[in-house]
């Protein structure tokens, strides 16, 4: 079985948030749900300031606090190491969300169909799209995945359940890269199998020093950062997105 991991090259990231958008369209996530988020940071005082950027997907931790606290096993580890959310089992207690130190969980506070940015209830549009909401609804997300055949793909699935970055399980199972990685204009995001010594991620991790976020929490994240340092308490977020439903 593969051991999937993501490697993020901070030296390349321009903080453009194209990954955020690629994720949103691919996974049909509702308003304000940013499974992939990119921090824009500022440090220091004028004129000795430093500006940098840090993408934040789900860390898909190997010792995932969210998996441990899930009362019903809706949040679970797949054999390939992806931390998945079975939205058919989730009871919406949001314990995973409070347990997660990374803030990657998003709850469906509303009926997703009514939470896709615009009122898509439009006759002229329905004539073309057949009335799907959103009009760019991705049918791949409707399939069960993994040997366990559980419903883990995509966002905006049901009111009152938790969702988060899936590492694009529906793409990964087809041998494609997660949408954010596939689209990154600066090739700052990498994805692959750590068990394969020739994969990009293995090679990058061999070549460059890396860190993982909040490693001291013992969560053993599967997202590695190279080419930079973790944020410190002196790191201020700028241009933060505070989208609410």
């Amino acid at each position: 079985m593969a051991r999937y991991a993501m490697v993020i090259d901070l030296e390349r990231c321009t903080g453009c948030r194209a990954c955020v958008e690629a994720c949103k369209v691919e996974n049909n996530t509702p308003t304000a749900n940013l499974w992939m988020y990119v921090f824009r940071f500022e440090e220091g005082e004028y004129p000795n300031t430093h500006v940098w950027f840090m993408p934040r997907p789900c860390m898909h931790c190997d010792n995932a606090p969210c998996v441990k606290v899930c009362p019903v096993g809706a949040r679970y580890k797949r054999l390939d190491g992806l931390t998945a959310t079975d939205w058919e089992r989730c009871i919406g207690c949001r314990y995973c969300e409070v347990a997660c130190p990374y803030g990657v969980n998003y709850f469906n506070w509303k009926d997703p169909a009514e939470n896709y940015y615009l009122d898509w209830n439009d006759e002229d549009l329905a004539a073309v799209t057949g009335g799907t909401t959103p009009p760019y609804r991705n049918p791949d997300l409707d399939q069960p995945y993994g040997s366990e055949q559980r419903r883990v793909a995509g966002g905006g699935r049901a009111k009152g359940v938790i969702e988060k970055c899936t590492f694009c399980v529906h793409r990964v199972e087809q041998g494609l890269l997660p949408a954010c990685v596939a689209n990154c204009p600066l090739f700052a995001l990498h994805f692959g199998d750590l068990d394969d010594p020739n994969s990009t991620v293995s090679r990058l991790l061999r070549r460059k020093p890396s860190f993982r976020l909040l490693e001291e929490q013992g969560t053993q994240p599967r997202v590695y950062y190279i080419g930079g340092k973790p944020p410190t308490t002196e790191t201020r977020q700028i241009e933060e997105v505070k989208a609410r439903v």
Binding site: A18, K24, L118, D119, T129, P134, Y136, P185, F187
Partner: peptide
């Protein structure tokens, strides 16, 4: 663009369908 798009490029799908 070599297989990639900027955030606007991705997001314009919503402009396409915008009622």
């Amino acid at each position: 663009n070599r297989g990639t798009l900027c955030p606007k490029g991705i997001a314009q799908i919503m402009a396409l369908y915008d009622p």
